[in-house]
Structures are given as C-alpha cells and as structure tokens.
Amino acid sequence: MKAIKSNNKTFELTGERGDYFLTKDERGKVKMFLKKDVEVIEVECLQKKTYKTKKSTSVNSDPVQTWKKIALSVNDKWNNNSYWKLAENKSGKLNTNGNEFIESLLKSMFENGKLSEKQAYYLAKYGVESGQLN
C-alpha cells in the first residue's frame, strides 16, 4: 500500500488531485499534501491508534456513614421521603440487648422525631457493628 510520511506520521494515500495527494490518517480523517513537499513510500499497513478508556472504579462507601444519613432522615420525615421509611423499618427492628444508650437514641428517633449528627452516627455504628444493619 502506498503511503505518505510527513512529520514522522504516516498517512494512507487515497488519491491525487492536481498538485495534491489525498490521504487518510489512522482515524480516517482526510488530509491533503502538496506533492513536492512529501515523499511517497510503500508500507504493509498503517498502525491503528488505540485509545484506552478509563476503568470505572467502584466506590466503597462506609456503611456507617450510609446508615447515619438514613437515620438523619428522621429530621425531615414530613417530606414523606423514602429514607425515613427505610430508617423506621430497619431501626425499629434493632435489638438493643439492654444497651440503655441505644434505647435512648431509638426513643429520640421515634418519640421525639429528632436526631443529632452524633446520635445518628452512634446508632448507625451500633447497628453496623452488631451486624443488624448491612
């Protein structure tokens, strides 16, 4: 196959038009070169340029932070959000094993309808560490 070499790049020769060579690069883009500025060479094939795509990386989020966010939805339950329903369903089934601190957090969550960031964190941490929230 005939090709043209210009600036250390090789272009496939596809035709001629007057004083110009018509060429294609590795992407298929058409280019024109003056015949007097380039030399024609013989090559077996053009190397196709390969492009690598970014590999997707999975984000392993901290389950404690995820459940903390869900527990904090109690503060915004009047908007009928689905997080509150999930928090109510999962936290209502937590087995406290006589832990008064966790019982007080659940009381604050269900009776008072409010949780601070720290309360939500400790409730989520207890649930994840005990294997009841996953």
Rank of each mutant, 00 (worst) to 15 (best):
E12H: 04
L13M: 04
L13R: 01
T14Q: 10
G18W: 00
Y20A: 03
Y20Q: 09
F21V: 03
L22K: 10
L22D: 07
D25C: 06
D25P: 07
G28Q: 03
G28A: 01
K29V: 13
V30Q: 09
K31M: 14
M32H: 14
F33N: 04
L34S: 06
K35S: 01
K36S: 10
E39L: 05
E39S: 04
E39T: 13
V40W: 05
V40H: 04
E42F: 00
E42P: 01
V43E: 05
E44F: 06
C45M: 09
L46V: 02
L46Q: 12
T50M: 05
Y51T: 09
T53V: 10
T53S: 12
T53R: 14
K54N: 09
K54E: 13
K55A: 10
K55M: 12
K55S: 13
S56R: 10
S58L: 12
S58T: 14
V59G: 02
V59M: 07
N60D: 10
N60V: 13
N60P: 00
D62L: 07
V64R: 12
V64C: 05
Q65L: 14
W67A: 07
K68F: 05
K68P: 04
K68T: 15
I70Y: 08
A71W: 11
A71E: 08
S73Y: 13
V74A: 13
N75C: 02
D76H: 14
D76W: 05
D76V: 12
D76R: 15
D76I: 03
K77G: 02
W78L: 06
N79E: 14
N79Q: 14
N80K: 15
N80F: 15
N80V: 08
N81F: 10
Y83F: 15
Y83A: 10
Y83C: 09
Y83V: 02
W84K: 10
L86I: 15
A87L: 11
A87G: 14
N89C: 03
G92I: 11
K93P: 05
N97G: 05
G98R: 00
G98V: 02
N99A: 01
E100C: 01
F101Y: 15
F101W: 08
E103Q: 14
L105A: 06
L106S: 08
L106D: 12
S108F: 02
M109E: 05
E111K: 13
G113N: 04
K114E: 06
L115W: 06
S116K: 09
S116T: 15
S116M: 06
E117K: 15
K118Q: 08
Q119P: 00
A120E: 09
Y121W: 11
Y122G: 03
L123P: 05
L123C: 11
K125W: 08
K125R: 14
K125F: 11
